[in-house]
Design a protein around this nucleic acid. Structure first.
Lengths: 226, 226
DNA sequence: CGTATTTTTGACTATTTTCAAGGGATGTGG
DNA sequence: CCACATCCCTTGAAAATAGTCAAAAATACG
């Protein structure tokens, strides 16, 4: 098996190249279910990446900081998403719970074993990683070339899609500061832009301001830019 | 916030097909060596992703467009890099030669076969993909949170590092418009910022303006932000 | 309820973009 | 090898989008 030829700290290749291997029919050693309260840190940038995670419920933000504290949230991880699987031995992001969140933690050293016993799991990991990459790529376009309006329109549509709540309605789990640091804006600009979108009847802001009606999805799509 | 306009390119690239007798790795991996002239398109967003590529010499830019022509170059692919391997059946980017470039094209359908016969090649593919992801993640921080100065400082240091030419000196293969669309700036801002860096004695601009001396690497590192 | 946190709004500032024009380099054909 | 054309880069001035600073309003929380 080619997996043996791969450096131990780079266990991920096994996913691609072994995912259709015959199941080893081992059960038992699955992941560890963990609960986190709002704001709890799962791991920090530079920590040993011994575990990777799958979101069961809630949401996770993962981010990097500049030396002076500016923050870039690269992704929000929502139920079903897998995150924290790194190429190297260390985590390259900090991960925190946006709200009360339940995850399953998997030991990275067991990845090969897990995927062997459950090819579907391996497939899931791979798919999730590919989705992460695609989202990262789309997000570069957003960060580099979209206006504040376009950023917010894209963000709301993506969240509505991924959280797949009642059609045309999203309850955002994160606060304005998180949205701002994800979209490369300030909280003031996020707030002002949302107010403007509401004034233009593209969205409706309900009580608590996390509750958003996407009144005019077609209009929002048009605003996205792509 | 206007990206440089892209003119559609319909000229069939002058590709010289040639079996690569000497594979890049010490493997039996066979690919097709192809040559592209400056500006030639390897594939477009939406094309079937039948092949993926490894850069032998030269450089490739891969980008996405917004509907009004704004462009975001997500990455420059330099000698040794592997690119164009997609999760789905279609390419999600357009790839063009920045300069005269030689690549080896591999049929995606033969990836499994190739890696089976040559584990080292599989590892190479995987490592290159992971590097791409890491660069994408770092680039999100740059696009979302860095100033023009910090963007240019980071860019020059990265290029100097990856092109690994004579220490403290880079010959950039791409023009200002490419740099601008990679960093989420305009060509004017790129030009002005480079001029300013030169005035501050952090860099020196030689003839042709693609030739950059990194006079003060420590200063540039400090300017990076992270 | 009262306090802390988050969000909104306002006035002002600034970095970056836009618009415009000039200068330099590069390449082609005569 | 020169002349011309094109593309690329630089620079300036004005405009605009988004950021900063400040404070009030709304919401969440104990």
């Amino acid at each position: 098996m080619q997996a043996t030829a791969i450096r131990p700290q780079h266990s991920t290749p096994a996913i691609i190249f072994k995912r259709s291997a015959a199941p080893a029919s081992r059960s038992g050693a699955i992941g560890l279910t963990q609960h986190f309260a709002k704001g709890d840190e799962l791991f920090a940038e530079g920590d040993e990446a011994d575990f990777f995670y799958k979101v069961v419920s809630g949401s996770i933000r993962s981010y990097k900081l500049l030396s002076d504290g500016r923050r870039q949230i690269d992704a929000f991880h929502l139920p079903g998403d897998i995150f924290g699987l790194e190429a190297d031995s260390d985590h390259r992001f900090t991960a925190e719970a946006v709200e009360a969140t339940t995850v399953i933690a998997f030991r990275r050293s067991r990845l090969v074993e897990l995927t062997a016993s459950d090819p579907a799991f391996g497939e899931q990991v791979m798919t999730s990683m590919m989705r992460s990459l695609e989202r990262a790529q789309d997000h570069m376009l957003l960060l580099g070339r979209k206006t504040a309006q376009e950023k917010l329109a894209s963000f709301l549509l993506e969240m509505a899609d991924r959280l797949s709540q009642e059609d045309g309605h999203v309850v955002l789990p994160m606060q304005r500061a998180d949205i701002a640091d994800h979209l490369g804006l300030t909280i003031e600009t996020v707030s002002r832009t949302l107010t403007q979108l509401a004034r233009d009847h593209l969205i409706g802001l309900r009580s608590g301001s996390r509750d958003v009606d996407l009144c005019d999805i077609k209009g929002l799509r048009h605003l996205q830019g792509c």
